[in-house]
Simulated assay, not measured.
Amino acid sequence: MSIRLAGVAIFLVAALYAWTAQNYTAPFGDVLGPSVFPIMVGIPAMVLALSLVVFPGGTVSWPGPTRLVRQGLALAALVAYSVLLEPLGFPLATATLICVVGIIMGGPVLKSAMIGLIGSLSLWVLFDPVLGLPIDFFGTLFGG
Rank of each mutant, 00 (worst) to 15 (best):
G143P: 00
L32I: 11
V41H: 05
I39D: 01
Y17G: 01
P34L: 07
G7L: 10
V69G: 02
I118L: 14
G7V: 12
A6W: 09
A76M: 09
A9R: 07
V60F: 12
G139A: 06
P27E: 07
V47R: 08
M46K: 01
R4K: 15
A80R: 06
A15E: 01
F138L: 11
G89E: 04
L110F: 14
S2M: 11
L110A: 14
G64A: 08
V47A: 15
G116C: 12
G116Q: 09
A95Q: 04
G143S: 02
S61A: 14
A26D: 12
V109L: 13
N23Y: 02
L123W: 00
G143Q: 00
A80F: 12
M114Y: 08
N23G: 13
L50F: 12
I3M: 15
L32F: 13
L68R: 12
L68M: 13
V100I: 15
V83A: 14
V54T: 09
V125A: 15
L32Y: 10
A14V: 01
V69I: 11
L117G: 14
Q71G: 13
T25N: 05
P134A: 08
V69E: 05
L68K: 07
L48Q: 07
F142D: 02
A49G: 15
F138M: 03
L12M: 15
Y81F: 15
G72E: 09
L121E: 00
V31W: 10
W19V: 06
Y17F: 15
V100L: 14
D30F: 05
L52H: 03
S61L: 11
L121H: 01
F11R: 10
G29M: 09
L12H: 08
V83F: 14
Q71T: 11
Y81A: 04
A21R: 12
V109T: 14
L84A: 13
G7Q: 04
D136Q: 13
F55H: 14
A21S: 15
V109H: 13
A26H: 13
D30C: 02
M1W: 07
M114W: 12
A77R: 04
L48H: 10
L123M: 14
V101T: 13
Q22W: 12
L50E: 08
P63I: 02
L85N: 02
L88E: 10
V109G: 03
P65T: 10
L141A: 15
L123G: 08
A9W: 06
L52D: 02
T66A: 05
L68E: 03
M114E: 08
